Computed example of a mutant assay.
Amino acid sequence: MGETFYIKNMVCNRCIASVLDIFGKEDYTVESVELGKVSATAGKKTNKSALASKLKEIGFELIDNETETLVEQIKVKLISKIKSGETEHLFQSLAEEFGKTETALSKLFSKSEGMTLEKYTINLKIEKVKEYIQLGQLNFSEIAYSLNYKNSSHLARQFKTSTGMSMTEYKNLKSWNRKTLDKIV
């Protein structure tokens, strides 16, 4: 049975591929991988500090304490839920999944990241809105509905507050300025 590694900044399938590549080059046999987490068995030539160094070179980080691990798991869950459109009762479902209260999760996240869990979630949603606008497949009302906003006006206000421009202004820019999900905090 191998060791479980928690890795910061794994936010997409390309991240998984990059991490798998590094684990292989560092002589680990990977048993399972998901965003933020790798289970692997060390080979004869493994060196954990070399693994950490190689991961850091491409923007990842091994997590070695319980609080950071939980915060990273929260981020991964939020990214997955927003990507899949599971945004109704988001904080309640997170609390249930992690066996903590919404307040406890929020305090833990704020203390660790210097940003509230709600603000982080809004930032994730705004980046998703930018992606939808860039793809041009949905109108603003459909975007609002897909992210579980009560109405498109609520989304429009939140977008303007976060970006300093309206969604229409952003759409007309054509030189979109999107943040990568690992750079939101």
Score class of each variant (00 low, 15 high):
residue 132 Y to P: 08
residue 109 F to R: 00
residue 111 K to V: 15
residue 76 V to G: 10
residue 133 I to Q: 04
residue 101 T to P: 05
residue 91 F to W: 15
residue 126 I to G: 11
residue 132 Y to W: 04
residue 78 L to F: 06
residue 100 K to P: 07
residue 141 S to E: 14
residue 147 L to K: 05
residue 162 S to C: 11
residue 118 E to R: 06
residue 164 G to Y: 04
residue 145 Y to T: 13
residue 151 N to Y: 11
residue 92 Q to N: 12
residue 132 Y to S: 14
residue 123 N to S: 13
residue 149 Y to A: 05
residue 109 F to E: 03
residue 157 R to P: 05
residue 118 E to M: 02
residue 89 H to I: 11
residue 147 L to G: 05
residue 98 F to S: 09
residue 130 K to P: 10
residue 160 K to S: 14
residue 82 I to C: 02
residue 142 E to H: 08
residue 143 I to F: 03
residue 127 E to I: 06
residue 113 E to D: 06
residue 155 L to T: 08
residue 108 L to R: 06
residue 106 S to A: 04
residue 119 K to P: 01
residue 127 E to H: 05
residue 89 H to K: 11
residue 86 E to C: 01
residue 85 G to T: 08
residue 92 Q to T: 14
residue 101 T to E: 12
residue 150 K to F: 00
residue 85 G to F: 01
residue 110 S to G: 06
residue 150 K to M: 00
residue 136 G to R: 10
residue 115 M to C: 01
residue 94 L to S: 15
residue 139 N to W: 00
residue 87 T to M: 00
residue 152 S to K: 14
residue 145 Y to G: 08
residue 147 L to N: 01
residue 160 K to Q: 13
residue 125 K to Q: 12
residue 136 G to E: 07
residue 124 L to M: 14
residue 91 F to Q: 15
residue 148 N to I: 00
residue 139 N to R: 00
residue 144 A to D: 11
residue 127 E to C: 05
residue 130 K to N: 02
residue 133 I to A: 01
residue 88 E to V: 09
residue 153 S to L: 07
residue 77 K to I: 06
residue 130 K to T: 07
residue 110 S to F: 01
residue 97 E to D: 04
residue 91 F to Y: 15
residue 109 F to A: 02
residue 145 Y to H: 12
residue 146 S to R: 13
residue 149 Y to D: 05
residue 102 E to Y: 10
residue 165 M to D: 09
residue 158 Q to G: 08
residue 131 E to Q: 11
